[in-house]
Amino acid sequence: MKNQYNSSRRRFLKGMALAASGVIVPGFAPARAKALITKPIPSSKEHIPVIGLGSSRTFNVGNDPLGLDNVAEVMHHFFNAGGKMIDSSPMYGSSQPAIGYGLKKLGKMNDVFSADKVWTWNSGLGSEQMEQSRQFWKVDSFDLMQVHNLVEWEDHLKTLYRMKQQGKIRYVGITTSHGRRHDELEDIMKSQPLDFVQFSYNVLDRVVEQRLLPLAMQRGIAVIINRPFQRGDLIEELEDKPLPKWAATIGCDNWPQFLLKFVVSHPAVTCAIPATTQVEHVKENMAACLGLLPDKTMRIRMIDYVENII
């Protein structure tokens, strides 16, 4: 499954590349030294780093003081490397209070780009759940609130649009994962004034390149990518395989950077949100925010290489 764009999409792609000039440049033109690679949110032109931080599983540590301190340590290195967006959900157990613990400990409540979700089948409880989430995070308000896995999306989106109008959130989004319910998501993206959409994408699972990513570009919707490592499975499969020498030309020293740069170099992708419990991993991931991003030719080479060795 190769990356294919039709001519109109190519024109749009070019426009996006120009908008992000200095970030994605065909032919590997260098980005500013040590400058973080950022991309604009189409609806506001606000730039955010292309690597964020997910919290599914990894930050769900309950009341474990060691676990909470480890979360704070991971967040410390994330922020130190210039990271902004942290993503969570009420579905992720104690991840939200853990993030709040880290933000308070690090004094970063005003620096984080806070992305959370509403996840309840009782749409009347959505506002209450979001307020509970806000208190867990210890932030004044969320930057981005998303409908989790399309759950009761019609009602929740109405609530989110109202909250955006009232200034309680800045962006509205919707999410899915594991490649599920793409047809419904596509219809929503076509009909709703979304700021963000979130779904799964990685070097092996590229089905979203067919319709969802081009549609996001056409509609001016920012794209967050979850599961860039297939929940760690890709890393496990690749860790014993040799990284190609040419990976160095796009600033990749290891497989996580290779996989992340592949994901965020798609012109429609705004950022990826890998999750980790380890400081070394968050450093590796954030290093994918530096240097060069592959262009279309290099992306095809990356796909071919990975498909041949797995």
């Binding site: 990894t58 540590v61 309950g62 474990d64 579905m91 089948w121 399309l150």
Partner: peptide, 21 residues
């Protein structure tokens, strides 16, 4: 929508976090 979930989607904690409980 609940039908689109698998049970493993709800296992959103690590082995370490589980046994620390």
């Amino acid at each position: 929508e609940l039908a689109s979930y698998r049970l493993s989607d709800f296992i959103l904690f690590s082995q370490a976090a589980y046994y620390r409980q």
